[in-house]
Amino acid sequence: MAFDWDVIWRNKYLFLGGLSVTLKLFVLALAGGLPLGIILGLGSLSSRRWLYYPTRAYVNFIRNIPLILVVFWVYFSLPLISGRSLGPFTSAVVAFVIFEATYFCEIIRAGFQSVSKGQIQSAYSTGLTYFQMVRYVLIPIAIRRVIPSLLTQGIVILQDTSLAYVIGLREFVRTAAIVDSREVRPLELYSFVAIVFLVLCLVGSLVVRRLEARDRQRV
């Protein structure tokens, strides 16, 4: 059996389209997941019970079920809420925001906990309100400490986007499957998909490692 790498070149526009869907999904999942994660993180550290318990219940619930099920579940339940079908892309974005926010929450919570009581008290002592303290002291310090972990989670999200495949979204992996059904070149096609993800994620983790090395020097 001879290799036929041309199959990829022949379908380059399909692949570019698939990749752009994957990247769009990735960016939207980040843009929605991170803010929601910060809010959940604040809720997780709240001393108000009515805030703390629902937040933790939500986070622990979502973290214990497979992402693929969340994707399905949103896909099936969203039409019930909105009254009309929203298509796979919207469903996927909603599912990823709901899911990844809980992972961001845990990372950010750890970051918040690394900010010392003294720093928070000194912020209050200069007359800052709670929201000012969060905005100007807590978040800037905490986020900077957990940037490597956040980026690592970003790499995981990029990989997770492939799961949108199951609800028929034509992202990168689904594109390969579609091309494969026509050309029957699974080895070349899936190797190609694997290599693209590998390169993207390796570059990502290289950046993370750089940042970590830099942080260590600063300490």
């Binding site: 990989q159 492939s162 992996v173 499957a177 699974p186 190797s191 998909v193 694997a194 994620c201």
Partner: peptide, 11 residues
């Protein structure tokens, strides 16, 4: 670690 599990399974 850097290839999505889904892609690995398909492979």
């Amino acid at each position: 670690r850097n290839i999505p599990l889904l892609v690995q399974l398909f492979f």
